[in-house]
Simulated scan of single mutants.
Amino acid sequence: MAVDPDKIGVIAGSGQFPLLFIEAAKKAGRRTVLIAHRNETGDEVAAAADEVCWLKLGQLGKLLKFFHSRGVGETVFVGAITKTKIFRDILPDIKALSLWNKIDSKQDDAILRAVAGALEQEGIQVLESTCYLQHLFFPHGVLTRKKPDNNQRLDIAFGWKNARAIGALDIGQCVVVRNRSVLAVEAIDGTDATIIRGGNLAKEQAVVVKVRKPGQDFRFDLPATGIQTIETLASVRGAVLAVEAGQSLLFDPEAMIRAADEAGIIVVGVSENLDGTLDY
């Protein structure tokens, strides 16, 4: 079937990002063809799309067949996939198994780049997930009423260096620190679990730092925060959320900042200068 330029594929995980993307794409005049993952993608996302195919993680051949039958020539990856499902809730078809066996590293970027490569070999271009949503980038500066004190600024700088290091190894994008000690490092369990692990060790006043990976591919796996992040940090009496500005996504900013102010949590968008110093 010929490519329909009005259509855009949406390969969706969980969360609100897929719904926000579909709404923005429609405003831009695109028809959305959705790949929805069972036990991940919300029903409201499926209801918003023009066409939908439900599948389980690993059904790459089914995905390609659906896109080709609908004339999809461009697609995006949006929303999270629970990473632990790689080990317990995957139904790989022959196409996926063949691809999986060619991947040396089973880390996030390696898997996603391999899937993107397979799509592009089939004539389906993978676009940046933010192509219609630049307004969702995390802003620069202190966003809350409270500002970080000197000790917290030192923790932000310390956490930044360590978060960047684990990102370079494709381990995660977030660390939890207190008094220049790393209490938790994000791994396959995700940001919220990392905050809980680190926050419980800190007892209180934990500082969470979340950054992009060096060489971050904006087509997928962008860091994202929202009100759920604040609620999780508040549950362990955390003190600071520092996020790299312009390199990650912020959902429901007004509600998030309101919740942070109510909990006494500092939220700050941080930028790195050419000389390595931090600015906010």
Rank of each mutant, 00 (worst) to 15 (best):
G61R: 00
H135K: 03
K102L: 08
D149Q: 12
Y280N: 12
A259E: 10
V182D: 02
K85I: 04
V268L: 01
I11P: 00
V182Y: 01
A118Y: 11
G215V: 01
E262T: 05
N179S: 08
I81S: 02
I156Q: 00
P223Y: 07
E204Q: 14
I35L: 14
A242G: 12
L250T: 13
K106S: 05
M256S: 11
I230M: 06
I8Q: 03
A242I: 00
L119D: 09
Y132R: 04
I11Q: 02
R219M: 05
E244G: 09
D252W: 12
A116E: 10
L274W: 10
P92H: 15
A49M: 14
F138W: 15
A202Y: 00
I266D: 08
D89H: 06
S14R: 14
L154P: 02
P214V: 08
K26R: 11
D108E: 13
P214G: 06
V52M: 07
P139R: 04
G141S: 02
M256Y: 06
F67I: 15
R219S: 08
N273F: 06
S14H: 12
Q107F: 09
C53Y: 05
F218K: 13
V176F: 02
L201E: 09
G13W: 15
D93H: 12
V33E: 14
D217C: 01
F138G: 03
K95W: 03
V268Q: 10
A12D: 05
V52G: 07
G215K: 09
T144W: 05
V211C: 13
A260T: 12
A157C: 06
V207D: 04
Q173Y: 04
G246W: 06
S105K: 12
A25I: 04
R31F: 08
I111K: 09
A12M: 11
D4Q: 14
G238P: 06
A118Q: 14
A49T: 13
I166R: 06
H68Q: 11
V236E: 02
E51F: 13
Q216P: 05
G215D: 06
V209C: 04
F220I: 01
V72Y: 14
N179L: 00
R145M: 04
G190P: 00
N162G: 05
K102C: 10
G159P: 11
I265W: 01
V115S: 03
I196D: 08
R197N: 12
T75W: 09
A12F: 03
F158H: 01
T277H: 06
N101R: 11
I90L: 15
Q205P: 01
A163Y: 07
K213W: 03
L222Q: 08
P18V: 10
L119R: 04
I35H: 05
F220C: 00
